[in-house]
Write a protein that binds this DNA or RNA. Sequence first.
DNA 1: CTTGACCTGTGTGTTACACACAGCTTTATG
DNA 2: CATAAAGCTGTGTGTAACACACAGGTCAAG
Lengths: 140, 140
Amino acid sequence: MTVSELAKRAGVTADTIRHYVRTGLLTPQRDPNNGYKRFSERDLQHLLFIVEAKSLGFSLQDIELIFEQAAQGQSPCPQVREIMSHRMTEVAKKIEAMQTTYNRMESAMERWKTQPNCIPTGDHICHLIEGFSEGGCCND
Amino acid sequence: MTVSELAKRAGVTADTIRHYVRTGLLTPQRDPNNGYKRFSERDLQHLLFIVEAKSLGFSLQDIELIFEQAAQGQSPCPQVREIMSHRMTEVAKKIEAMQTTYNRMESAMERWKTQPNCIPTGDHICHLIEGFSEGGCCND
DNA sequence: CTTGACCTGTGTGTTACACACAGCTTTATG
DNA sequence: CATAAAGCTGTGTGTAACACACAGGTCAAG
């Protein structure tokens, strides 16, 4: 398989695959004629694994670790469980942070409805943002 | 002010400030004696603006745009409103995607409780992940 | 054989900083 | 005053996971 054939079969872009090859997650052979990457069925299997693991929140580094474990004939399952709980708390934190930001954005938008545009005076840049926490407005 | 003094007054790290300087968001003078960055009160004001805008979901590029507008004496407010609504849909999408991932993670963890560890056979890498969507288990 | 369409590998850009590191400053001490 | 330790500085580079640009190679049609 070439890069684009593999990409089509796995539902990812060719660039994604190239990225995985560059970082060593996939190790295709090379066509001696033109230097093109040549992928096997096993490579496809690995790629599908990557896609699924990513959808479960694993990072590419996590996945590389799992591959290494498995390549040594060792069960990656204990690591998988451990990494997963790490990632879960991480993701939870990120969601919370983004939600906090989103809430701030909503309340800003709400307040801005009643605030006019203002011209920078040199003392301030944009009253919509500046002193938003304190509730100031350019016409106060 | 030096970098670290400014950092302390704004509650950010010195590296953050150095980053803003490198990208042109802050433009301190230089101490002719030692080449150190020298910040003014106006720089502090700009930095505080950056911090606040970031907490409202603006990117550094957005903020640079706002600075440019204001520097030309034009009101950045219309742009600010427009960018904000862009960013809000972006953030909402991200939150949704992460929430989806999180839900998948939760259900994976739940299912894994009853699944034993398995040893890679060459046909598979980790049954916990592989075929998770189909509900397979290494002992099926 | 040539034209055009498509595909390839490699190099670089993206976001918002954190870290490493050699060298300069400042402070404490003798 | 000399010196050594502690701290601070600027610059260079690394991070995650790709996307994009681009010069050149490949393939089918004519």
